[in-house]
Write a protein that binds this DNA or RNA. Structure first.
Lengths: 167, 167
DNA sequence: GCAGGATATTTCGACGTCGAAGTATCTTCA
DNA sequence: TGAAGATACTTCGACGTCGAAATATCCTGC
């Protein structure tokens, strides 16, 4: 399975076909990993002076965009596409920093609401301005490239169900 | 700085321009983060039964591609674009699993060579076949999309110096 | 020949993320 | 209505990654 098996020309051609395909896939996968590393490093570097990370910023921004400034933990995980344990961790840190408060859910005693504080809102503003100013680490790409990137990845996300109506 | 300041139409237009730009950048950044999460999850899931992670697989594959099957720790970090501490960690785990051995560098006593073992080579083969078969989690993208992705990210990587002659 | 600076690794602590297991609380349906 | 299953969180341990500090070993210029 590892190398083309000998002399069958059809198998050989097929193997080459598959191999070209695979090389492209590996290159793309590697590129994606590296792109994430680049963007995250740039963004986190900007956020560090503010005492934030991108992960926590995302939670804060999500809450700030909400009508009442609060959301059940589970919803946060759904929107941000991370496991519940990750939300617990982020909210713990945000709460330690006084940027978010946990409150009881009014009707469901299993659930916990994360509620953004005034300080949290102010910091979210500042952080958003900061990241907007450096274009989220993507200042070197033009608008067309940005849209292309988002579109292609959109295909991938659609394929894995990111945009299901259920969500 | 947070919201457009009142009535100046030029400022307002400029703000809108900037905002559109920024929205694209944020969308692209979010897409990149999510794409990495999708690809890494898919790849790691395939590798888990083999007792590997993508990070360790990359080290193994890099060593396997080398003439003598060995490389100084520092070189590994350079090629894989990770910090020295990350290489130390990966090689520690690979060494515990008998997939790699540390050896003294013949001429530079500061340096350490990571050397792939026979078991390491065999596992790298199997892992490569496995990942090739599932196209590195990108089976849902066609060849054109894969190349587009790699090309656009290439622009970004060039901008941050990934392809400097020095490297 | 040696002092000072560069380079190669490791150690340490911090963080985000995951998966699995555990606990508390709904909800459903027989 | 009461047991069985679904949900919402948290806890725990594992892992990859980083940045900073520490250690050991070159290397350079005087």
């Amino acid at each position: 399975m590892t190398s083309p098996s000998g002399s069958d020309p059809i198998a050989a051609a097929s193997a080459n076909w598959v191999r070209r395909d695979v090389v492209d896939a590996m290159a793309a996968a590697t590129s994606i990993m590296r792109a994430q590393q680049i963007v995250l490093a740039a963004v986190d570097a900007e956020l560090r002076p503010l005492g934030l990370t991108f992960a926590r910023f995302e939670v804060l921004r999500l809450l700030a965009f909400t009508r009442r400034g609060e959301l059940p933990m589970g919803k946060i995980g759904e929107r941000l596409m991370v496991q519940p344990a990750t939300v617990t961790n982020s909210v713990n840190r945000l709460e330690s920093d006084g940027l978010v408060e946990r409150r009881a859910h009014p009707t469901d005693r299993r659930a916990t609401l994360a509620c953004i504080t005034a300080r949290g809102r102010r910091l979210a503003e500042r952080a958003t301005d900061t990241l907007d100013a450096m274009r989220y680490g993507l200042a070197d790409l033009d608008d067309a490239d940005l849209r292309t990137l988002t579109a292609v990845i959109g295909t991938l996300r659609r394929a894995v169900g990111d945009f299901d109506d259920a969500a």
